[in-house]
Structures are given as C-alpha cells and as structure tokens.
Design a protein around this nucleic acid. Sequence first.
DNA 1: GTATCTGCAAAACTTTTGCTTATTT
DNA 2: AAATAAGCAAAAGTTTTGCAGATAC
Lengths: 144, 144
Amino acid sequence: MNKRIADLNRYLADKGLKITRQREAVAQVFFDTDGHISAEELYVKVSRSYPGVGLTTVYRTLKLLKEAGLAKERRFAEDSQGVFEKEDTARHHDHLICIRCGKIVEFKEPLIEKLQDEVAQRHGFSVEDHKMELYGLCSSCRTA
Amino acid sequence: MNKRIADLNRYLADKGLKITRQREAVAQVFFDTDGHISAEELYVKVSRSYPGVGLTTVYRTLKLLKEAGLAKERRFAEDSQGVFEKEDTARHHDHLICIRCGKIVEFKEPLIEKLQDEVAQRHGFSVEDHKMELYGLCSSCRTA
DNA sequence: GTATCTGCAAAACTTTTGCTTATTT
DNA sequence: AAATAAGCAAAAGTTTTGCAGATAC
C-alpha cells in the first residue's frame, strides 16, 4: 500500500540520495492528499502529524517528487502559489474552474481523451499527455 | 485599426478612469505583440518606444486590460512569472505541442467543445472559456 | 478644482540558497 | 568517516501598495 513511497525510495537510492524521516513524512502526507495542494498547505498538514519539518524541506521534497515523476506542478492564473498533485492522478484528469469563486472541480472524461487522440492523429501527432481547463461559473455562483 | 485601443478607452471612460499616455503606450505595445509576454518583458519593450513608463504602470495596465476582457493571464508550471496574451487570440483554439521539437499546431474541434459543455453541466458549471493543450510527438520526431 | 495616475521605494509573498549542525549510509 | 540533509535566516524574484507630486477631466 506504500507503493509510492517505495518508488520514491528507489529513486533516492538510485541517485545516491538519502531516505530521511522528513522526506517520508512529506511524501506520505502528499500521497494521502487528493487534488492539489500548495507547498505552504502541505507544510501545515505535515506539521500536524510530524512537527518540526521545515517549509524549506517541503519545497525540496516536492522538487524531488517532481524529478522522480511522482508529482506534478501546476499554476493557475488566479493564484500566485504553485500547486502540486500526484502525477498518476494528474495524468488523465482535467479541471473545471469557477471564474467567480475560484472553486476547482476535477473530472475525467474518457470520451474527450479519445477525441483528443483522434484530432492529434489527424495532425500526425501522438499524445503523451494533455492539460485541459474549463472556465465558467459553478452552480452557486450562477444562482447567486 | 486601433479597435482594441478604442475598446480600452471605452472601458476606461465607462468606469470614470482616465486615458493617459502611459496606458495607451502599454496597451499599444501589448496589442502589437503576438503570443505571450510577461509584465517585465512588456516593460522593456514599452520602454524602448516610450521611455519613462514604470514597471508598476505596466502591471496596473495589464490588470485593467484583464478587467476589460482584452488580455488574459496564464501561468506555466515551469515559469515563475505570469504571462499575458490577447484575449481574442486566446479564445477557442487549442494547441498540439511536440515535446521533442517544440512545434506547435493550433486546432479547433467543435465536438470536443460540445463534450466539454456536457461534462461541465454534469458538475453544475457553465463554460465561458477553455484551454486545452495536447503534448506528444509530431510525425517527424516520431519517425526520426 | 478634483479625482485619478504615475513612479518611486518599500512591502508582501512565494520560492530558493548559503550555511551550520545533524543524520544517513 | 564521508556525504547528504535539515532548518534557519537571508536572498531572490515577482507582484502589490503607500505616498507625494503630476496629469486628465
């Protein structure tokens, strides 16, 4: 059940880097988080379970997770902070973003992915990854 | 031919804001720019034609352009700076990006847009705009 | 004449870096 | 024992804000 932690540790070992309590703590809390989380938010969350881990370490660990292909960073225009999400969930899901309240909903739509492949093929491309963001108004903002 | 400047001026007048040399300079250079540009880059570019315009004013004018619906801000994960592009070119087209050679192909796929609307509706959202980027290999990079 | 603007310097934020001590291997 | 990591504080980079003088209406 800690496959991802194992993946990270393998990556670290490979590179001659060390497995530390702090790295495991940050990674564990990160992997237990669904959706996006900023470095700052992750820091707060980690601090609850493992006090004494510094913000710097959170940043540095997130960087490692990105290098290891386990995390992905995104930046939304509305937000000054970058956010991170698990790479495997990042891979095939997209975002609905409310332009009024900023609410973000994740969704998956296999049909869209199929169409993306078709369009790409028509242009001679193979698709490795994609990013899609839909901007609009969520139900509460629409009725308000 | 300066339709967009006129649009901006109308917006300013409407809001009781003033049309100034600096705002026109920033807007003009921005509208003459294709693709994305950061505030800093725009500042440098503006300074060449209209020296003495401050970076602060560039930021403030870009903010106005966004409010007026004439500019759009984006942030890419790789970059710490936000970038801006003209709203009308940003609208309703999507990008195929080759991850090896960087080639970018623009395309439109009405069927995908229709699906986007459906998905959004399912989550209670209305769609005002969208952004989609497909990353893969173009034909020449695939065969190479 | 009054309200808005500009540009500067300073502040606010997010992220990175240098350094000393601590930990992992 | 040698090398890497952690945490702090400080720096760096981007964007915003306060303010005094300037400009548009």
